[in-house]
Amino acid sequence: MKLDPRTKLFMVFVVSLIVMMSATTPFLWAIRLSITLIPIILMILEKKYSSALKFLLAYASALVLMFYFLSEQSEGLIASLLIGYCGIVVQFMPAIITAWYVVRTTKIGEFMSCMQKMHVPDGIAVSLAVVMRFFPTIKEEYSSINDAMRMRGVMLGGGNVLRMFEFRMIPLLFSCVNIGEELSAAAITRGLGGDVKRSSVIELKLGIADYLIMTFLAVATVIFVVFKYFL
C-alpha cells in the first residue's frame, strides 16, 4: 500500500503530540495503543515483518513490565533501572516506530516534492531530507568504525572514557563530512539549489487510504485532548 508522504508527516505529528501528553486513564491508553498500532500495521503491509515484530515485542514487554511489576512505590536499584528502560520504551517507542516507518518507506524524491507542495522553504526541506537520509548512514558508519577499532584492539572497556569517545567520534566525523561532500555534489547535479522551480517526476495524490488514516488520526487526537483536559 502506498501512502502519501503528507499522510505520513501528519502521522508523525499526531503521534508526537499524543506521546507528549501522558495517558492517565485506561481509555486514553487505549487511544494511545491504537495509534501506536497504525504504523506497525502499515509496516506489516509494507512487508517489513521482522522490524514490525521487533517493535511490537519490545513495546508489549515494556508495557507488561511497567504495569504488572512496577508501581509508584518501587524503589531500589534494579527497579529504577527497569523503570528507566520501560520509561524510554513506553514513552518514546510510538514516536520512534512512526519515525522509523516514515524514514524507511519514504523516498527522498517523494519527500522533496511533498515539501514543495506544502510550500516549506527550500532550506528547511533540503536540510530535513538530509537528516532523514543520514540517520541510517551514521549508524552504519558507526558500526564499521566500531568493528575497525575492535580489530585494532581498542575495546569498549579498555583505556579511559575520553579516548574511547575520541576514537569513535573523530573517524565518524571524518566519514560524515566526506559523505556530505559527495551528497552535495550529487544534489547539485540533480539541480538542487538552482533558481528555477524544480519539477518532480512523482505525482503526489491523496487516495482513499490517506483520507481514512488522516481522519482517524485527527479524530483520535481530538478525543484524546477532550478526555484528558476537559472531562
Binding site: 528507566g84 524510554i88 536540510s127 538530509v130 540517520f135 551514521i138 551528497l183 544534489a187 539549489g193
Partner: peptide, 27 residues
C-alpha cells in the same frame, strides 16, 4: 544547497550524540 546539506548532516550528528547521552537520563 551545499550549506543546507552541511546543516542537515551536523543536525543528524548532533542529534545522534544527544540521543546516545539522553538515554542515560532514564537511569
Amino acid at each position: 544547497a551545499k550549506d543546507f546539506i552541511t546543516v542537515g548532516i551536523f543536525a543528524a550528528i548532533l542529534f545522534a550524540v544527544e540521543f546516545a547521552f539522553g538515554m542515560l537520563g532514564y537511569i
